Structures are given as structure tokens and as C-alpha cells.
Simulated scan of single mutants.
Amino acid sequence: MMDSRWAYFIHLMAWAGPFILLQAVVLRLYFRERAGPIFRAALVPALVVGVYLSIADHLAIAEGIWGFGEGKHLGIYLGAVPLEELLFFVLTSVMVALGLTLFLALLSRREARVP
């Protein structure tokens, strides 16, 4: 399976999935009923950054700066960008956005305890 067109997708999900799930669980435990709106708010900048990076990637691929090996991705493209590459940018941005959200929550909680 790792030498098939599913290789990139499987690696991506195995890499990002557990970490985003952990972040979502911590977000839910820490923010409780506000977790949903906070998660949705974190998705907006993550999607903006993911789309921006995908556009930059499209331009680089179209100019021949780099490319992707045949048979290592699903073959679904948005412009010149493989779907998995777009997912990589979006999932990475989601991890960063959720990480910053949780980090800032931790800082505010810590500051609230300091006299």
C-alpha cells in the first residue's frame, strides 16, 4: 500500500490525524461548551493560510520548480496541486492554529493564577 497511489494520503493522515485529534480532545476538555466555536474560529485562518500556500505551490509546480512522482498520490488535482498537498497545507495550518489557541489559553490561565 505504501508504494501505491495512496502512499501520500496514508502518511499524511497517520502523521496529522492523531495530533489534531489530541488537540481537539484537549480543546474540548479545556473550553468545554465553547470548544466548537473556538475550533471553527481557528479553522478560518488555517484555511486562509492553506489556500495561500496551495496557490504558491501551484505557481511553483506550473513553473517547473518542483513536481511530484507519478503513482504516489491519488491523481486528484486542484490546478497543478495534488489533493494530498492541499490537505498537507490545510492540516498543518490547523495544527498550528489549534496549537496557538491552546498555548494562549494556557498562558492566560497561568497569568490568572499569578498574583
Rank of each mutant, 00 (worst) to 15 (best):
M1A: 14
M1Q: 04
M1P: 02
D3M: 08
S4N: 06
S4I: 03
R5D: 00
R5K: 14
W6Y: 09
A7D: 00
A7C: 00
F9A: 07
F9W: 11
I10D: 02
H11Q: 02
L12Y: 01
M13D: 01
M13W: 04
A14S: 04
A14I: 02
A14C: 07
A14H: 02
L22M: 14
A24T: 13
V25M: 12
V26E: 06
V26T: 12
L27F: 03
L27I: 08
R28S: 11
L29E: 09
L29Y: 08
Y30H: 10
R32K: 15
R32F: 05
R32A: 13
G36D: 05
G36W: 11
G36Q: 09
G36T: 07
G36A: 14
P37H: 06
I38G: 00
F39A: 15
R40N: 10
R40V: 13
A42Q: 10
L43R: 05
L43A: 12
A46G: 14
A46K: 08
A46N: 11
L47D: 01
L47N: 05
L47C: 08
V48S: 06
V49R: 03
V49T: 13
G50E: 09
G50H: 07
V51C: 12
V51P: 00
Y52T: 13
Y52G: 15
Y52Q: 03
L53H: 06
S54M: 08
S54V: 09
S54C: 13
I55R: 01
A56E: 13
D57T: 13
H58L: 03
H58E: 12
H58V: 00
H58W: 15
I61D: 04
E63A: 15
G64A: 03
I65F: 08
I65V: 14
W66I: 05
W66P: 08
G67M: 06
F68R: 02
F68E: 00
F68S: 03
G69T: 04
E70T: 10
E70Q: 12
H73T: 02
G75E: 10
G75T: 14
I76M: 08
I76T: 09
I76Q: 06
I76P: 05
Y77F: 15
L78Y: 15
L78P: 00
V81Q: 01
V81L: 03
P82D: 04
L83C: 02
E84A: 00
E85C: 01
L86S: 05
L87I: 04
L87C: 12
F88A: 02
F88D: 00
F89M: 10
F89G: 02
V90C: 11
L91D: 05
T92Q: 08
T92L: 11
T92R: 05
S93Q: 07
S93I: 01
M95V: 08
V96M: 13
A97R: 00
A97H: 01
L98N: 00
L98C: 06
G99M: 09
G99E: 07
L100M: 12
L100G: 14
L100C: 11
T101G: 05
L102A: 12
F103Q: 07
L104K: 07
A105R: 05
A105E: 08
L106S: 13
L106V: 10
L107A: 11
L107S: 06
L107E: 09
S108V: 07
R109W: 13
R109T: 10
R109N: 10
R110M: 10
R110Q: 12
E111H: 10
E111K: 09
V114L: 13
V114R: 15
P115G: 14
P115E: 12
